[in-house]
Design a protein around this nucleic acid. Sequence first.
RNA 1: GGGGACUUAGCUCAGUUGGUAGAGCACCUGCUUUGCAAGCAGGGGGUCAGGGGUUCGACCCCCCUAGUCUCCA
Length: 884
Amino acid sequence: MKTAEIKRRWLAFFESKDHVVVPSASLISEDPTLLFTVAGMVPFIPYMSGLIPAPYGRATSVQKCVRTLDIDEVGKTTRHGTFFQMNGNFSFGDYFKREAIEYAWEFLTSPVDKGGLELPKDKLWVTVFKDDDESIAIWQDVASLPLDRIQRRGMKDNYWSTGQPGPAGPCSEIYYDRGPAYGIEGGPEADEDRYIEIWNLVFMQYERGLGGGKEDFEILGELPKKNIDTGMGLERVAFLMQGVENLYEIDQVRPVLDKAAELSGKTYGQNEQDDVRLRVVADHIRSSLMLIGDGVTPGNDGRGYVLRRLLRRSVRAMRLLGVSEPVFGKLFQESKEAMVDAYPELENEYSRILKIAIAEEEAFLRTLVSGTSVLENHIAEAKNSRAIELSGDICFLLHDTYGFPIDLTLEIAEENGLKVNRDDFDQLMNEQKSRAKADAKMKKAGGVDLSVFAEFRAQGLSEFTGYEFLQSEAKVIGLVLDGASSREAKQGDLVDVILDRTSFYAESGGQSPDAGEILGDGLVLEVLDVQKPVKGLITHRALVRQGSISVGSTVMTRVDPTWRLGAAQAHSATHVVHAALRQVLGPSALQSGSYNKPGYMRLDFSWNNSLSAATKSEIEEISNLAIRQDLAVSAQFMSLPEAKAWGAVALFGETYDESVRVIQIGGAWSRELCGGTHVARSSQIGLVSITNESSVGSGSRRLEANVGLEAISAFNKDRLMLQEIAEQLKTTPANSLEKVSQMLAELKEKQRLLAQAESKQLLAMVPELMEKMQEVGKGKLLATRISEISSPESLRDLTIALRDRVQNDNAVVVLCGVINGKPNISVAVTSRAQDQGIKAGEIVKLASAILGGGGGGKADLAQGAGTDVSKIELALAEIAKSLG
RNA sequence: GGGGACUUAGCUCAGUUGGUAGAGCACCUGCUUUGCAAGCAGGGGGUCAGGGGUUCGACCCCCCUAGUCUCCA
């Protein structure tokens, strides 16, 4: 049975059992502490923990997941994949153990023509928590399983909790017996490779307290609402049903593996090491495809870095298989075709996905080239010094600084007959890891407890009136002082205010929060920040200026109209610039983040090269043209599929409800899903002026612009500056540029002429100075004072010129000159004199000490300076004496 | 978020404990020669990313800023 077919059956089965079918959430987790959606239940966590009331009693989903913790195990085992799909059914205070077990058994064992999977009953085993007699009874009753196929296991295997206070409970797992060829008898307790876990049923029934980790804690009591959370690994079931050996050989993955084998000329199944590499490629390509599809772009931190690693590991594995040409085009094509049945949206996204993948492949091939040359240098060096191994710090340097993978270092070193000090490398690697971890620990201390907001959220959603109104009458639902709920806040308090409705916009979608006041009878609060700590709940962080505020009272929210206009201008400008950007660069230039506040906007987007000045001007021009055309800006609510059919741009990492808000500027000219506040017509934006374009890491660029009045005042500032420059140059602003380049050219020419004249002058002095050359001891010495010299460089050049005249003799040239009122000395020694043990550096040291300063140099040339001009003759005499 | 590194001629890059800024390619001139990266001789081209500091003296050491690469969390 095809993987996509198992998925369809799953959803149909639970839909028939009155479950709401919830589409897979994005791989980009809504929870900021998680990089990715790592399990099927992640999107339901707020409902499980009670933070937000569940909108339905029972639900089902097939959730895309990415987990990279065991990335090094990929390809080596049957069941470690970085991308996988988790089939789940969930109950929020609705059904419990009996139904959960009944549904699971029915789905697994009912005949194919009845919508089930028809797994043979005698191959299924079950584990339960050791004290959970209730579950055992249900299993016997529902499935008529003999007791010897139900195994009791302890806390470690069959008890679920998050590791922290909150819901917890026993679980029951279903296993499939692959048969005696795969291991010993004795059930999952004995061999988890023969008996493969396919489904985990979690019965959340207790509230757990503090305590160490996942095994040692106190049970506080029963949960008021018991939940069911189950997860069936889609890939595992698929590989069992498809009669293949592991998850890399299922229909959604195998074609990539085959293509990689074809490209490398390898035959799968002949060599274990090559097989692992082929599986790594197949797994990583699929994960990358899905991640890019959900809007992740390669980067050097967070999610982007995980994706980059997956892509680069694929390139590395291909290279170890003997392929060094670019291959992503072919591999991604296979992966897309294998996945598109289950995820049709991949078809539309594919050209964007491929572009991003190929750009990363090219970038990595470049770093491999430069890394290879560094490695070759070190190998040559090691061979020259007859070393037998490459040191660990060189391998670490290659990995850490040049991004050159250790496996490739090992391979290439081996080809050159060198070993690698792997222990030192691992040690350095661990040091780097603990550094980063220690830092993360420090930063994490600032975590906020959101539970205080859960009770307010349970009373309902905060209504946002700010799209239509700047002011709203509202009732005070709650106050939070120093993290604790409070009845009242007095003058001077900094308080979080929760209202039943508000005209204040909370920070989201890149738009900064509204500023303004909350007013009441003798009451004035200055609103400093507006946030949504929990989905659906708006809090106002405010300072009580006058009077006091209490729960239950009626207040008026008043947004500062000037602030709001500025914010709306900036946000609409962001949409306009985004549309212009895509018009110029094409649809792959997708916004990856934004920030805007009155007068300023910032837009991050995926793109590989810096923008030329012409491109920037073009974007700016299109933006301002759209502003001048006075396009209508409208907002309307519709379903997500409707919005997508309209071609509205959805931004990744944002989560959208069933009903989404689409902002249009000039109809189809710009359509984006957005919850922000906007101007009514594009002309109200006034002006957009791009100030800067820069990189935020490889593959990601940032545009910044001034908006409205800010743009005009920035222009004014520039104009004033240009005027001042023109005045200084005694010309007009229009002619300033020409004047400056003219002046620079002139200056350069003058400097050139000056240097020429000076060197001519210096050379002219040579014959005269040569006459002062004396015989001292066995050699020649020229030690004299120069009257006219302008710089230490000239003094040096002259010294060298003189030495060159006697370069075949045993000779020393010493020149002293006064520069800026200080005595300078320069000494040059011919090679024959150096052979006699004469060192220029020592002569300078001797002289500069007499002159009251310092100096030094090498054997052939040295320079120094001092403070006492009157000592020059003495110093020269001492030099002559020392050489004589 | 934390670390490592890079930025030198139009291009690719050397520059070894701070003391004369270099090579190859490209360019210009001349000679030789008429083809597959031609040869020979000569020549032009540098705010050593920008700014500050230490020093008699900084491409080199220290600090800041910008751009780029890279690893780890």
